[in-house]
Amino acid sequence: MTCKPILLAIPLLATPALADEMWISNEKDDTLSVIDIETLEVVRTIDVGERPRGITFSKDYSVLYVCASDSDTVQVIDPDSGEVLHELPSGEDPEQFVLHPDDRHLYIANEDDAITTVVDTESRTVVAQISVGIEPEGMAVSPDGKIAITTSETTNMAHWIDTESQEIFANTLVDSRPRHAEFIKEGTELWVSAEIGGTISVFDVATQDEITKIDFAVDGVHPDRVQPVGFEMTAGDTHAYVALGPSNHIAVVNAETYEVEDYILVGRRVWHLDFNADRSLAFTTNGVSGDVTVIDVASREAIKSIKVGRFPWGAAFRPTGG
């Protein structure tokens, strides 16, 4: 019986792809770093197009979509081989995108063009382009697929798009430089972070009315430098983990009370994050320090820094059935 762990370990070593993975886009290296979630080490580095930023997997994780911003394209990548399968028309300078729940349509923010582009990933065609505010960035689609959101950084708005007609049906002002949007609580609330405003605005999706605004304050850091960017929800949407940019902290926000419960020190200029399968670990991309901080969600402590490429931007989890 004592040899059992060894027997288990051998197949794991022989086929490292069995462990779940965290994929990181490195904006200034034109690469992706693949982190093995068991060993917390980079196991693969994959060359992609210029200035990769937004990354997301298809619903069955069979392909990865990458915004190659300076190549003006979305690349579709086979995550097993790391090969670029084909490219999708994306409009100019795609920065961030979201995959519709139908697993087929990508909603893409074209940062330089003030446009949201809707691409059909099957026919590989652009099905709609929607004029939005200046420097669109944050993208979200409601869980029922009916509403898409684009936030525009210089116009300081969330644009509410009807995915049936592909037209804007509402515009709501948020604080300066909105960066990221998420539908939470089964799509009843929309959260929008504002980097320069230093807040997250919470909206009632049914009415588009603002419910509240969440403020942040990190000890010893001037409020101007506390800049919320990416955020993701823990299991059951009970808490949000909010990346606070150049304040180098993650805020843990109680999603019921809208109170900040904790601040966790991570690497420099923390930008986005994602969780592992059971959401027990968070992986944050730290642009300036060029690394990923791994946070243990239970203890709310950073447990490891992992060196990746230059200027890590996005993070996307991939289960591999291991």
Binding site: A114, G133, I134, T154, T155, N156, M157, H159, I168, N171, L173
Partner: peptide
Amino acid sequence: SDNLTTGKFL
């Protein structure tokens, strides 16, 4: 031009 883009929504 920046103002106009914002203004057209409002």
